[in-house]
């Protein structure tokens, strides 16, 4: 069963007197344990699609279903809570909170909801260890390398046991070796934890690590592999 399903999504913006069609009837499904890549040139509508899948933007047409829940039926207030519980975000660089250490970055996600329990702490430590950060728990973001920061962001995305992981250019500022490592870890975590992961990227070298590849061009989404 697909954890994330986008059906016939269209999105248009009005810019002055003209209407820009950013997405045209895009459909996409991601099953548990899969990592799906969306590639395409900038301005093609990749980010718009990701924003819609991430409940940050409302589609003009079409339905988004995550873990069986139709997002169209949720109020804006419920959407924040839905994002917190069902979605994990991995964004481009500098998305860590500068004044929190690595462990606190993960615990913050729990704080947003309620109190942090011992089990949460153990879970956070385990995630960080799996991502090769066992000796960095108390480090601040500015003491980490770019690759390490992105790994913290991956751990944070998995912290809440979210159903769907959305990655927006997670390798944008990394050299190819580190980029490869980061995507590998993302694929591995998605598989092991049976989550649905989507990654928007420019980087064609990462595609062999993905289960499916979609290409986006001028708002039209086509499945490649």
């Amino acid at each position: 069963m697909a954890l994330l399903s986008l059906q016939n999504i269209s999105k248009s913006y009005t810019e002055g007197s003209t209407t820009v069609q950013a997405l045209k009837q895009a459909s996409l499904e991601v099953a548990a344990g899969e990592l799906v890549a969306i590639i395409g040139p900038s301005g093609s509508g990749k980010s718009t699609l990701l924003s819609i899948a991430g409940a940050l933007l409302q589609p003009t047409e079409g339905t988004v279903t995550i873990n069986g829940q139709d997002l169209g039926n949720l109020s804006p207030k419920k959407l924040a809570s839905f994002r917190l519980h069902e979605l994990g975000f991995i964004l481009q660089t500098s998305n860590l909170i500068p004044y929190l250490n690595v462990l606190d970055q993960l615990l913050l996600v729990k704080k947003m909801d309620s109190r942090v329990t011992k089990a949460d702490k153990a879970h956070a430590k385990q995630l960080l260890t799996e991502l090769g950060l066992s000796d960095k728990f108390k480090k601040m973001p500015n003491e980490l390398s770019g690759g390490e920061r992105q790994r913290v962001a991956i751990a944070r995305a998995f912290m809440n046991n979210s159903t769907v992981i959305l990655a927006d250019e997670p390798t944008a500022s990394l050299d190819s070796k580190r980029a490869f490592e980061v995507v590998q870890l993302l694929a591995k975590e998605a598989k092991e934890r049976q989550k649905a992961a989507i990654m928007v990227t420019h980087d064609e070298r990462m595609l062999p690590l993905c289960d499916h590849v979609y290409r986006m061009e001028d708002g039209v989404l086509t499945k490649e592999a």
């Binding site: 991430g54 839905f82 994002r83 917190l84 975000f89 909170i97 947003m112 809440n160």
Partner: peptide
């Protein structure tokens, strides 16, 4: 703003 945007994307409520 950017930092709070990230927190909101993750799922932080306005109240938090």
């Amino acid at each position: 703003t950017q930092q709070f945007g990230v927190m909101k994307a993750i799922g932080a409520s306005n109240g938090f």
